[in-house]
Amino acid sequence: MGKVVMVTGVARQLGGRFVRRVQREPGIDRVVAVDVVAPEHDLGDAEFIRADIRQPMIGKILAQRSVDTVVHLDVSGTPLGSGGRTQAKETNVIGTMQLLGACQKAPTVQRLVVKSTTSVYGAAPRDPAVFTETTPVKSLPSGGFAKDAVEVEGYVRGFARRRPDVAVAVLRFANILGPHADTPLAEYFTLPVLPTVLGYDPRLQFVHEDDVMDVLVVASLEARRGTLNSGTFNVAGDGVLLLSQTARRLGKPTVPFLLPAVTWVGQVLRTAGITDFSREQIRLLTHGRVVDTRQMRETLGFVPTYTTAETFHDFARSRGPGLLPPERLARAVDRLAAALPAQAAREAHGTHGGRDAGRVSHDVSGPGPRRVPDDVSDHV
């Protein structure tokens, strides 16, 4: 018999897409999709069960369906519907506790994959340049989704000690972007003008939503060198981008604020329901965060298809041109480069021209326009 995979959080785009993807993998007998609300998207041939992972019913599902692989994707920074932050925290923390308790009692469970985030490292001014999976965190997140993820990972480690026969993989994803991304950072980048923190230009990493699907499949189903790919893994595309570079590639202006003012702007945006501009996101957009991905490559055996820059390019292309598209900006720079030498020559002629002083010359020919780099967005 093939594997029986249970996936939580399938009402979200990420969970629904993984359900459709994993059904196509060889060796999969059945996929059981679980969420508290019915998804609006198609789940293929998966069996959908409307259930709340915070309730004991999840244990019955594991036993009745003989589930051997659990992929826990119902850990998110944004709630479904209008439940607010309280519902999100209960689902993340209480739901994970209940799910792990059910897995501990289910003898058929052999594999557990948990979606986490690099936000567990926090973002502070004295952070190391690059975080590894074992780097001691100097400033633990004090609230929000990042704190939920820290608690979730603590419960997962406890489960791994109680059930050493179960292979456990925790995937710490960098900021997920792509044409269909619905993350808080994606919402931030869709604003017409990007609020930033005055004096800071943080380094950012991204992972493409397609790579998220691929690494979930690898962590859930594949074995490498006779192991079951257990452990904690940072997942991100190669390279980094500065926040200023992302704004230029989107063609959007930035408005720098002092840090207290940025916090106030975030509260206004949250109250208006425009975007979840949380405190942890403000810290990220102040200090940035970069993680090492060697364990992902060497132990898990996964190499992302997209770099950080390519991920952001795909995301930006899907959102259309901003107020200052790079192509339009390049043409403006060309015109400016051609006009400045001519204007300088006119002024010089008027100053030193004797009897011609004050007369505007129409014969002055300055040097031609300088060549603007192809990626003008990174040089202007």
Rank of each mutant, 00 (worst) to 15 (best):
V93I: 14
A261M: 11
A51G: 04
T271K: 14
P369G: 14
R225N: 14
S76F: 03
R24L: 13
F315E: 05
S377M: 06
E310P: 01
L14E: 12
G354H: 13
V36Q: 10
P107H: 08
T286F: 05
A348E: 14
V217S: 11
D42E: 11
R30V: 07
V218F: 00
G101N: 13
E280T: 11
F48D: 04
L194R: 03
L221K: 02
G358E: 08
V36S: 12
P256M: 07
V114E: 06
R249V: 07
V168K: 06
Q104D: 12
L258V: 13
G83P: 03
V36F: 10
Q104H: 12
G158Y: 05
R294E: 14
G15Q: 02
G301M: 00
G84H: 00
I274G: 06
E90L: 15
A339W: 11
L112K: 02
K60A: 13
S142C: 11
N92M: 07
Q98V: 07
G266F: 10
A339S: 14
R294M: 10
V7K: 01
G226R: 08
V168I: 00
V113E: 06
S230R: 08
G288S: 03
L340C: 06
L140S: 07
T96W: 08
D165V: 01
A338Q: 12
S278T: 15
F159S: 05
A46M: 08
D238Q: 10
L228M: 13
F312H: 04
A169E: 03
P326R: 02
R279N: 13
D363W: 11
A223V: 03
E40T: 10
